[in-house]
Design a protein around this nucleic acid. Structure first.
Lengths: 107, 107
DNA sequence: ATTATGTTTCGTATTTTTGCGAAATAAGAA
DNA sequence: TTCTTATTTCGCAAAAATACGAAACATAAT
């Protein structure tokens, strides 16, 4: 996108939103909100998808910057990327809260 | 998705997130956070995309329940869908805030 | 050196998304 | 009735997302 109206913030928000835009990925992020870390294998036991598919979802979350992985052979420990999560929090928070619905109603 | 782990909330969050997962749609929602309503034609003048493409983005936001349109010939007035926006606020808010990053760090 | 383990990458198929221009639509104005 | 206006729907093409199984990978254990 190249316009003076669509800003980097819009692009970044869209990138984060897109990453959360699949039930499996939403589930993973929610799981990481209740426990500090997780492993691909544990997720695979809960989810009705192939391990290779799960791996791709993790890859996408990582590409969007929402998670990061550290190798602990033979496993890989995934956890939230703090810095980017704060950014997502700010961007979503701004959008969601700024709308004062009491004053924002089409009659 | 059909698993006891992925809930309706995950599905709904993903649906909202997916709708926000494009710069143009993120822009539109942000615009609707600063002004009560907008018209497709006004958006079209700001955005570097075809009107038919813009129309599809509006259609998707509508399908996700984030906006609604009321006809005012020859225009259509778009505004936020209050009820669903509250739901989105709750779902995103829950996910984003629940993560206490001070206690959620992989060493 | 071989095997075992947890995970990813590769190759491929299917579906969905994104985008455009042309045509259709619906109602008000002339 | 015909024209104008704002927007959508249609038909299509190109790109991206989703999914799978098979093969590859990297290291630790045997």
């Amino acid at each position: 996108m190249n316009t003076k109206f669509i800003t980097n913030d819009h692009e970044q928000l869209a990138r984060f939103a897109k990453a959360l835009g699949h039930p499996v990925r939403a589930y993973i992020m929610e799981l990481l909100s209740t426990q500090t870390c997780c492993f691909s294998g544990d997720l695979a036991e809960d989810l009705p998808i192939a391990r290779s598919t799960l791996s791709q979802h993790l890859k996408e979350l990582k590409a969007a910057g929402l998670i990061q992985g550290t190798i602990e052979y033979p496993k890989i420990r995934y956890c939230i990327n703090r810095e980017n999560w704060e950014r997502a929090k700010t961007l979503f928070g701004h959008l969601l809260q700024s709308i004062d619905l009491t004053n924002n109603q089409c009659k």
